Amino acid sequence: MTIADLQYLPRPAGDDDPESDSPTLAHVAALAGVSLATASRVLNNSAGVSMRAREQVRDAVTHLGYVRRRAARATTTKRVRAVAAVVCANNNRLFSDPFYARIISGATEELAGHDVPLMVIPVTDDRLSLIEPSLHSGHYSGVLLVGAHDRHSLTVSLPAAGVPVTMIGRPLHATRASYVDVDNKGGARLAVEHLIRQGRRNIATIAGPPNMAVGADRLAGYKESLARAGLPEMPIAYGDFSQASAVHAMWRLLDQRPGLDAVFVASDIMATGALHALRRAGRRVPDDVAVVGFDDIPLAAHTNPPLTTIRQPIEETGTMAARRLLSIIDGEAEEQDPLLPTTLVARASA
C-alpha cells in the first residue's frame, strides 16, 4: 500500500465528510496495515491491541495528518469552556517536584486573564484508559500536555480527535501537537563550558530519561561541549528526574570513574541526590568534584553548598504554552513553536 493508493479507498459511513479530501480512518488503517476496528481501538486507547499495531496506527495518523472531523471543538464562535493540564506523573511526583507547580502557575495566570479555568489531571500509563475518554468528550476546549514521554498515545489520539494540544517540551518524534520548549541543548553547553573554564577535565553526567526530548537534548549539549573541547568521553548514568535515581546514578559514576572531577546533572532535583552521594563518598564539593544542575528551582540556592545551575524560565514556559493553546483554539494562524533561552547561575558548587 502506498500513499497514492489511499485516495481510492472507500470512506466508511460516519467517519468523515464524504466530500472532503482529508484522510479518513480507513486511510489510517490501510497505511498501518491493520483493520478499521483496530485503528479505532488504538485511537480510543482500548485494550486488546498489540504495541506494534499501536505504533503503526500512530505513525500513520501522524504521517497522514488525520483528524476526526466529527469531534468538533471550540472555535471563535464558541466560548472556551476549560483547559486541561494533563501531567504525565504520579501524585507523589506532581506534588514534590516544583517544576510542575511552576508550569501550572504560569499557565493558570495566563488563562485566568481570559476567564478560562485550568483543570489539573495527573495521569500515569496504567490510568490513561480512565482519563482519555473525558479528554475526547468535548468537556475541554484544549489540553496542555506536561511531561509526556516519547510516542505517548495522547500526542497522537488527541490531535487526531481534533483536540487542540500544546506540549511542554518538544516531542522527539513528529506529532500534530504544538509545543513550547526551552533551549535545553544550549543550556547544557553553558553548564559544561563553565566547568571547562574552571579547569575540570573529567566531566561526567547524570542524564534525564532518553525517551524524553528534555533528557536527549541536555545529553546532546553535554556531548557537544566535550567534543569541542577535545575532552575524553565519560560513562553516562541515567536518572528519572527524581532524587533517589540520582543517588544511585552518582554511585555508579564514582565506581566507574573514581577520578571524575565534575558532574553535570540534568535537573536540580537530581543534583541534590548527587550532592548527597558525593557527601557520603567523602568527596568535597567543589574541591574534589564540581556539580552543576539544571532548572534553578528555589531549593538550588539553599543546598550545601548552594548549587550552580542553568536557569530556565519555567513560569514563562507555562504562560507561553497557555497563550499558544488559546490561539490554536481560536483558530488563529499557527506560529513557529517557541524556544525560550536559558542562562547560567553561578553559585558555590562549581
Rank of each mutant, 00 (worst) to 15 (best):
A191V: 00
V163E: 04
P23N: 07
A85S: 06
H276I: 09
P171F: 07
E316I: 09
P98G: 08
R73H: 13
R81T: 13
S35D: 04
L253M: 00
A207C: 10
T155Q: 15
A227R: 15
A112D: 07
D217F: 01
D337C: 11
N45W: 11
L231I: 02
E109N: 10
Q336S: 14
A188M: 04
A350W: 07
D5Y: 01
H139T: 14
A82C: 03
H139I: 13
D17I: 04
M119A: 13
M250T: 13
R197I: 01
L111F: 01
T2M: 12
I3D: 14
A71S: 13
A26C: 10
D296T: 04
L325W: 13
R73I: 08
T124E: 07
V156E: 01
I168E: 03
S242C: 07
A13G: 13
P171L: 06
F99A: 06
A204S: 08
A4M: 11
V289N: 09
R73D: 04
V49D: 02
A271F: 01
R323I: 04
F99K: 06
R252K: 07
A204N: 02
D255Y: 01
N202Q: 14
R52G: 07
L135D: 03
I328Y: 00
E224N: 08
P159Q: 03
I297M: 12
A26K: 13
E315T: 14
A249K: 05
A148F: 11
M320K: 14
T309P: 00
Y179R: 05
D240N: 13
G186M: 03
T175A: 07
T62I: 10
H152S: 06
N202D: 09
D150Q: 07
A300D: 07
S105V: 00
H152L: 05
V49F: 01
A350K: 06
Q243I: 07
N211T: 12
R11M: 11
H149M: 12
P258D: 01
L118E: 00
A213S: 15
C88R: 11
L254E: 05
E19Y: 09
G147K: 02
V28T: 10
A333F: 06
S245D: 02
T319E: 14
R102D: 15
A333K: 15
L118K: 00
L130I: 06
Y222E: 02
E132G: 01
R58E: 14
V182D: 11
T24D: 05
G162V: 09
A107C: 06
S134P: 00
L307N: 09
Q336I: 13
D255R: 04
A161V: 03
T308F: 00
V61Y: 03
L278V: 04
S22H: 08
A84N: 04
D16I: 14
